[in-house]
Computed example of a mutant assay.
Amino acid sequence: MTISIGDRLPEVMLKKASPEGAEDIRTVDFFAGRKVVMIGVPGAFTPTCSNDHVPGFAENYDAIRARGVDAIAVLAVNDHHVMGAWARFTGAENKLVFLADGNGVFTRALGLETDMSERGLGARCRRFSMVVEDGIVKELNIEEARGQAITSGAARILEQL
């Protein structure tokens, strides 16, 4: 079952990519008492994720933060090494928090897993964006079309904040 507005995020352990390496992050702690915009992407370094989705949030970082958001997080079913390299590649490492869901546990718990095996990518995260307040989903945007970041893009989140 897919997570919905009003639901509490599941409690799992993720890895936060940082210049110092990986840090274990419990979702319950990361989202507690904060307003967070989280985006989910099919994979680091993939075209739409790298050229559109993440850059849109990095470019609108100040505008999003000005609307009371404490953090912007990017989630992908990749390991923390890949997420760290992607953070550096995008130049957004000091703006966005890159969260690795290496085994897809959080993605499955959200009900947002998609099978991209036919494209050689295996189990991945559907493209989405959400606004989370104190662990509760307040807004949820799931992208239906592949290769686009419109429904889940920064402009949509800015409209919702």
Score class of each variant (00 low, 15 high):
residue 88 R to Y: 07
residue 63 A to Q: 10
residue 130 M to N: 04
residue 9 L to Y: 05
residue 133 E to H: 11
residue 6 G to F: 04
residue 147 G to L: 10
residue 112 L to I: 08
residue 114 T to F: 02
residue 70 D to G: 03
residue 32 A to W: 03
residue 156 R to K: 15
residue 94 N to V: 06
residue 138 K to L: 11
residue 98 F to D: 01
residue 67 R to H: 07
residue 62 D to A: 15
residue 111 G to Y: 11
residue 130 M to G: 02
residue 155 A to T: 08
residue 56 G to R: 09
residue 133 E to R: 13
residue 81 H to V: 05
residue 66 A to D: 11
residue 82 V to A: 08
residue 19 P to W: 09
residue 132 V to A: 01
residue 144 E to V: 07
residue 40 G to V: 13
residue 86 W to C: 09
residue 12 V to Y: 06
residue 1 M to Q: 01
residue 120 G to H: 06
residue 8 R to H: 05
residue 153 G to T: 05
residue 91 G to K: 01
residue 63 A to V: 12
residue 54 V to M: 04
residue 3 I to R: 06
residue 34 R to K: 15
residue 24 D to T: 12
residue 45 F to R: 05
residue 14 L to I: 00
residue 92 A to P: 08
residue 112 L to E: 05
residue 33 G to E: 08
residue 116 M to L: 12
residue 3 I to A: 02
residue 161 L to E: 02
residue 135 G to H: 14
residue 66 A to L: 00
residue 121 L to S: 15
residue 40 G to I: 08
residue 100 A to P: 13
residue 17 A to E: 03
residue 28 V to T: 03
residue 71 A to R: 14
residue 96 L to D: 14
residue 17 A to Q: 09
residue 136 I to N: 03
residue 23 E to P: 15
residue 95 K to V: 00
residue 142 I to K: 08
residue 137 V to A: 05
residue 34 R to G: 08
residue 82 V to E: 00
residue 130 M to V: 03
residue 137 V to K: 05
residue 137 V to S: 00
residue 81 H to R: 12
residue 92 A to R: 02
residue 18 S to A: 10
residue 88 R to V: 12
residue 51 N to F: 04
residue 41 V to L: 13
residue 25 I to Q: 02
residue 87 A to V: 11
residue 20 E to A: 15
residue 50 S to I: 06
residue 109 A to E: 15
residue 60 N to M: 06
residue 79 D to P: 11
residue 82 V to Q: 10
residue 57 F to D: 02
residue 46 T to I: 10
residue 109 A to N: 14
residue 132 V to L: 01
residue 110 L to Y: 03
residue 113 E to D: 13
residue 150 I to T: 11
residue 26 R to M: 13
residue 129 S to K: 13
residue 131 V to I: 12
residue 60 N to Y: 02
residue 29 D to L: 07
residue 150 I to D: 06
residue 50 S to R: 10
residue 137 V to I: 06
residue 143 E to G: 06
residue 49 C to F: 11
residue 93 E to C: 05
residue 16 K to A: 01
residue 145 A to K: 14
residue 73 A to S: 08
residue 26 R to Q: 09
residue 144 E to T: 11
residue 2 T to R: 14
residue 4 S to C: 08
residue 98 F to W: 01
residue 72 I to Q: 03
residue 42 P to Y: 11
residue 97 V to T: 13
residue 115 D to K: 05
residue 57 F to C: 06
residue 56 G to T: 13
residue 94 N to F: 12
residue 17 A to V: 01
residue 118 E to F: 04
residue 39 I to H: 00
residue 159 E to Y: 10
residue 17 A to D: 06
residue 159 E to C: 00
residue 35 K to P: 11
residue 160 Q to Y: 08
residue 146 R to V: 07
residue 71 A to Q: 14
residue 63 A to I: 07
residue 8 R to E: 07
residue 148 Q to D: 01
residue 7 D to T: 00
residue 46 T to K: 09
residue 66 A to N: 12
residue 62 D to I: 09
residue 7 D to G: 05
residue 36 V to H: 10
residue 156 R to L: 02
residue 109 A to F: 05
residue 63 A to G: 07
residue 30 F to M: 02
residue 35 K to H: 14
residue 83 M to H: 03
residue 3 I to W: 02
residue 115 D to A: 02
residue 115 D to C: 08
residue 161 L to V: 05
residue 14 L to V: 00
residue 86 W to Y: 13
residue 37 V to A: 06
residue 88 R to P: 01
residue 105 V to W: 10
